[in-house]
Amino acid sequence: MKPDSSLSSQDAENVAVPEPMIDWVSLSRHFEGNEGLIEQLIDLTLRTQAEIPSQLGQAADRLDWEGMARSAHDLKSLSGHFQVWALVELAKTTERAARERQPTAPQLARALATGTDQLMGVLAAYRGVVTQTPDPAAAIDLVSELHAFAEALRGRQMAAYHLAERLQTHLADDELWPALERAIRAALDLEFAVALSYLEPALAAIEAGGK
């Protein structure tokens, strides 16, 4: 269970970098014992999120308030996926401090970047993999991609997360009609059943020739 704790930005000058401790038993229970899903989540994180800590550090160095807030928000979600609550709380505090342009924000951001780098190291050690940079994705066939998305959602495969990112990146704004957009957002939050409930009617409408 997530602890009810928070870090005050007023204490930022003395902020310590939280240890990225992962309770693997609790994490396995959260994913209903689906170890394959956990491994896919780790692999996807290492492949697609490894640059965020350095981006956050760079934003702190140049006092990019929006950049700090955006990266902290992303790292809040990333840490939450692995239930590293100390990093989640630090990310929340960092995001709030950056949005309010508090002078403590850069130091908080650097601590968060360091802690998340350490988390990446823990994940890489667990999987025994080297972080890779993803290849640019090619243009997609919408119907085929949505069928693959639906299949991944039904199987609760981490590929659904990757496909949601791909769809979000490659579809023009006017193509993201409400049901499909909600499906993508739900998948990015790892709510696969919810995503499927939005996707199936949207896919049926597409195949019927209308949005």
Score class of each variant (00 low, 15 high):
Val84Leu: 05
Val84Asp: 02
Val84Ser: 01
Val84Phe: 01
Trp85Asp: 00
Trp85Glu: 06
Trp85His: 04
Leu87Val: 02
Leu87His: 00
Leu87Cys: 04
Leu87Ile: 05
Val88Leu: 01
Glu89His: 06
Glu89Met: 10
Glu89Gln: 15
Glu89Thr: 07
Leu90Ser: 02
Leu90His: 01
Ala91Glu: 00
Ala91His: 00
Ala91Gln: 06
Lys92Gly: 10
Lys92Ile: 08
Thr93Met: 04
Thr93Leu: 09
Thr94His: 07
Glu95Lys: 08
Glu95Ala: 01
Arg96Asn: 15
Ala98Val: 09
Ala98Gln: 03
Arg99Gln: 06
Glu100Lys: 13
Glu100Asn: 11
Arg101Asp: 12
Gln102Ala: 13
Gln102Tyr: 15
Gln102Glu: 15
Thr104Val: 13
Thr104Gln: 12
Thr104Met: 13
Thr104Trp: 14
Ala105Gln: 06
Pro106Phe: 06
Pro106Lys: 04
Gln107Phe: 09
Gln107His: 15
Gln107Asn: 14
Leu108Phe: 02
Leu108Ser: 00
Leu108Tyr: 02
Ala109Asp: 04
Ala111Phe: 01
Leu112Val: 01
Leu112Asp: 04
Leu112His: 03
Ala113Lys: 00
Thr114Ser: 09
Thr114Gly: 05
Gly115Glu: 03
Gly115Leu: 00
Gly115Asn: 01
Gln118Lys: 06
Leu119Gln: 02
Met120Val: 06
Met120Asn: 01
Gly121Gln: 08
Val122Ile: 03
Val122Thr: 01
Leu123Gln: 00
Ala124Arg: 02
Ala124Glu: 05
Ala124Ser: 03
Ala125Pro: 05
Ala125Leu: 15
Ala125Val: 05
Ala125Cys: 14
Tyr126Trp: 15
Tyr126Cys: 11
Arg127Ala: 04
Gly128Pro: 05
Gly128Phe: 12
Gly128His: 04
Val129Glu: 05
Val129Thr: 07
Val129Ser: 03
Val130Trp: 07
Val130Asp: 10
Val130Cys: 11
Thr131Met: 13
Thr131His: 14
Thr131Trp: 08
Thr131Lys: 09
Gln132Tyr: 10
Gln132Ser: 14
Gln132Met: 10
Thr133Phe: 12
Thr133Arg: 14
Thr133Gln: 11
Thr133Cys: 10
Pro134Val: 09
Pro134Cys: 05
Pro134Thr: 09
Asp135Thr: 14
Asp135Trp: 15
Asp135Ile: 15
Asp135Asn: 15
Pro136Lys: 07
Ala137Cys: 14
Ala138Arg: 13
Ala138Trp: 10
Ala138Met: 14
Ala139Val: 12
Ile140Lys: 06
Ile140Pro: 02
Ile140Gly: 07
Leu142Ala: 11
Val143Cys: 14
Val143Arg: 12
Ser144Gly: 10
Ser144Ile: 14
Glu145Asn: 15
Leu146Thr: 07
His147Arg: 09
His147Gly: 11
His147Cys: 07
Ala148Gln: 06
Ala148Pro: 05
Ala148Phe: 08
Ala148Gly: 10
Phe149Ile: 10
Phe149Glu: 09
Phe149Met: 05
Ala150Val: 06
